[in-house]
Design a protein around this nucleic acid. Sequence first.
DNA 1: TCTAATACCTTGCAATACAAAGTACCATAA
DNA 2: TTATGGTACTTTGTATTGCAAGGTATTAGA
Lengths: 110, 110
Amino acid sequence: MENTLDNIRAQMRKGLLEYCILSILSKREAYASSLIEELKAVGMIVVEGTLYPLLIRQKNQGLLAYRWEESTQGPPRKYYVLTDKGREQLAQMDTAWDELVSSIQTLKQA
Amino acid sequence: MENTLDNIRAQMRKGLLEYCILSILSKREAYASSLIEELKAVGMIVVEGTLYPLLIRQKNQGLLAYRWEESTQGPPRKYYVLTDKGREQLAQMDTAWDELVSSIQTLKQA
DNA sequence: TCTAATACCTTGCAATACAAAGTACCATAA
DNA sequence: TTATGGTACTTTGTATTGCAAGGTATTAGA
């Protein structure tokens, strides 16, 4: 029941992570740790325990596929890419997101 | 596991309802059914089983207060209003929302 | 052969949106 | 007076999902 700005941020983010992941992967393939870095760079803190299950869910839904790639700096990495179905889903989410932003704008000014 | 646009909308909305409620109540007091109407008017479907527990949570957090008012058309209504604490919370949520919109915009163009 | 760094994964818990069903009040018609 | 329909508030049980915490595995270097 804390009310810090961080908690407010966290709460607002709920359900949007899936959209962010697809958006990032639509530009370039990435592995989990690099996704976490990119999200952190724009101010969205995500932890492993959130991201890994999410990626697995999206893969099981057929939105993502992955391939293993060796790394020079540690264990192999699982690079995820968008499938065609993932691209369709992203297009729908773009629409939904624009509508949501518009809805809230309307609410706040009426 | 459905993937309709409605489900996508629903998912994106998660966690944002609290913000919408405070936004509406910052403009005028309202009772549950009227909140549902106003949200529906901007395209956000909310059902009673979602809204009532949410209002009770916000009241228990001290963000809202309410008063009973007689109605000419049925049982009395519980009109909710923002408290000072609710106004503070709303201000923080405004910030968090703007940041979120900005973060996603950055993600999508990078 | 340790240790540190990197990367992936799992378990258990808490929060919350929802469907569905229930309770209560009021006006009006039979 | 009683029944009916409309309005409003509430509760219960379930599914989803974000997270803390802990675990496994690979690699490079001391």
